[in-house]
């Protein structure tokens, strides 16, 4: 698993020529399943870069953090840190306002729980994310990207699933 991630990142680096988009994104996540019954919506923040392999296909790497607070126990918070690689395919890249796409990401998720002044040992687990995108221009070289994702942390014995909404702003750069 770790070798696969390493290989994928190196491949992405090998493709580092041409045009790239540096992005920052914010979003909110909604925990699904038993683990999230007591947690309210989470807050996401991410940074990364996507390389334009073709006009339709982009691949890149990024890191994002999330925080979920307990609905009733204000002392309890779940933190996630996710380095990942991702790929997106856009169907209408020449359009300035309507460029729908699909995206997928894979990486490792570090989950840490803090509650009542204590904290469990963080867990590192693989995770995947898949969703749809709506890409649009904000005037060159800026672009915006709206996303709707399903995400699953493949932890042992039970997965941690999340539904998330995100808004990203990116800047095109020439490499």
């Amino acid at each position: 698993m770790k070798l696969a991630i390493l290989a994928a990142v190196l491949l992405a680096l090998a493709a580092s020529a041409g045009t790239a988009d540096l992005y920052a994104e914010v979003g909110t996540g909604f925990a699904m399943g038993g683990w999230g019954e007591s947690f309210g919506p989470g807050f996401n923040l991410g940074l990364g870069a996507d390389w334009r392999l073709t006009s339709r296909l982009r691949t890149g790497a990024g890191v994002d953090v999330s925080s979920f607070s307990h609905s009733h126990n204000g002392d309890a918070t779940l933190f996630m840190l996710r380095p990942s690689i991702r790929t997106a395919f856009y169907f209408n890249p020449r359009s300035a306002s309507f460029n729908p796409g699909i995206a997928a990401a894979f990486g490792m998720c570090r989950t840490a729980l803090e509650s009542g002044g204590g904290g469990d040992t963080p867990s590192w687990d693989p995770f995947w994310r898949a969703g749809i995108r709506w890409d649009l221009s904000l005037g060159s070289p800026w672009r915006a990207n709206l996303g709707l994702d399903l995400e699953s942390v493949m932890a042992s014995e039970k997965t941690g699933d999340t539904f998330r909404l995100s808004v990203a702003v990116s800047r095109e750069v020439q490499l």
Partner: peptide, 28 residues
């Protein structure tokens, strides 16, 4: 140089990556 830096960063990141059933405990 970029490759070496990236490989080093990944090695640091992946070292000590322990998994435990945190989500199972949260669900229970």
């Amino acid at each position: 140089r970029k490759l070496a830096l990236t490989t080093s960063a990944l090695a640091v990141l992946l070292t000590g990556c322990e998994s435990n059933p945190l989500y199972f405990r949260l669900s229970a």
